[in-house]
């Protein structure tokens, strides 16, 4: 038994290198962010730095840009949850039922998910060009309205949502497919023998059995839509006005466009606090999934 004790004690030291990196790159910046948030440091005005208490947080609360960013972030989350997930589940089910070419369809569907978001956003920007872009050319041929995709407040939001969906729906499809592949066949067969229709089978057999997988998808889509940044940066930088400025984008612009380090740190603290509930959601999902 002594040898088993040895084998399970020694590897603890193996997590040491990870700790050595996590402390300066994760824990120290979090503390530094908290520290900066109560001062008035600004790269634009290198005056002596003063302690200002909670003033940065107070001005956030008074700032209409902040509320607009909360709203935009919530809207992108809503698109993820109520549009991308249902479409992804639908496509996964269709793909699951196709026997021929299934793996070919699967690989080509997955490519968008892994492509460099910056490059993806750039190619869509090209296609969204209002005068000479291919999307408006198609809309013109179909005699539909041709919005100024990235210049119009409403259209810009949808442009970002479309590009995000193009990259994210494949993720929903991939994970759902994995869940469908792992699903036992017996309940499906029993339902078929009982004369259940396809819709009934999906509603009463497939979806309940998929619940753990769907919860994981829900969690990850919430997290990743909360973090959405690269695509917005390339397509609109949060504009026009503040139409696509999420909390991440607002934080970035505050720090690196307006150079207001302490104000940005305060927004960062708020964002860090907002990710805490995601931790509890994660724990809940894990307990259901396993």
């Amino acid at each position: 038994m002594a040898s088993v004790g040895k084998s399970s004690r020694a590897p603890l030291a193996f997590s040491l290198p990870a700790w050595i990196l996590i402390i300066p790159i994760f824990i120290v910046p979090l503390c530094l962010g908290l520290y900066l948030s109560v001062f008035d440091k600004s790269l634009g005005f290198p005056q002596p730095i003063n302690f200002v208490g909670l003033a940065n947080f107070q001005s956030d609360v008074k700032n209409s840009n902040f509320y607009s960013a909360v709203k935009v972030t919530a809207q992108f989350m809503a698109i993820a949850v109520f549009i991308q997930i249902p479409i992804g589940i639908f496509l996964a089910m269709v793909l699951h039922s196709a026997s021929k070419f299934a793996s070919m369809f699967r690989s080509s569907l997955l490519i968008p998910m892994l492509l460099t978001p910056v490059a993806v956003a750039l190619m869509w920007r090209f296609m969204f060009s209002s005068e000479l872009g291919i999307i408006n050319w198609v809309l013109d041929k179909l005699t539909l309205a041709q919005p100024d995709w990235l210049g119009n407040v409403n259209a810009a939001f949808f442009a970002v949502a479309i590009v995000d969906s193009w990259q994210s729906i494949p993720f929903v499809v991939l994970i759902t497919l994995a869940g469908l592949a792992a699903m036992p066949v017996a309940p499906q067969e029993a339902a078929m023998i009982d004369g259940a229709s396809t819709i009934q089978r999906i509603r009463y057999v497939t979806l309940p059995l998929l619940k753990p997988v769907l919860l994981v998808i829900l969690l990850i889509r919430i997290i990743d839509s909360f973090k959405l940044f690269d695509i917005i940066f390339i397509l609109t930088r949060g504009g026009p006005g503040t139409a696509t400025q999420t909390l991440s984008m607002l934080d970035y612009n505050t720090a690196f466009t307006f150079l207001a380090t302490s104000r940005a740190a305060a927004i960062g603290v708020v964002l860090a606090l907002m990710s805490l509930p995601l931790y509890f959601l994660w724990k809940k999902v894990i307990s259901v999934s396993s």
Partner: peptide, 17 residues
């Protein structure tokens, strides 16, 4: 989990400093 859930900007601002 927090590292996975937090937007990168939260850490980038203090890391830049």
């Amino acid at each position: 989990i927090l590292l996975r859930a937090m937007p990168g900007v939260v850490l980038i601002v203090p890391l830049y400093d």
